[in-house]
Amino acid sequence: MSSPLRRDDVAKVAKLARLTLSDAELDMFTEQLGHVLEHAEDIEALDLADVIPTAHPFGLVNVVRGDIVRPCLARDEVLAMAPDAEDGRFAVPRIMGEAR
């Protein structure tokens, strides 16, 4: 059984998910998510060491497409959707840190 969900865990998860939570929200989510995780103790408690996990309901394999060029979207149309664009590119505030 995992230890109960703590406020710190919720704060850490919020950071990972890029969400800002107020103190009240932190309290609320800690309690509500705690309830859901408590409910999940029914499956946590099962011994399923020998069970193979299922990620897909049906076992399709090798679904591929041919290496054939298809039309792209018009750049102006795409950039028109963007909150901010400049010089044919999507514009964002400065990036801290580097790509992985």
């Binding site: 497409r65 054939i68 060029v69 298809r70 792209c72 750049r75 795409v78 010089d87 044919g88 590119r89």
Partner: peptide
Amino acid sequence: KTATKMFCGCPNEFGAEANTHICP
């Protein structure tokens, strides 16, 4: 060195004008 990208039919080509090889 494919003709198209990994998961869509946009051209895999270096040096094109920005954002001209994009799709949903």
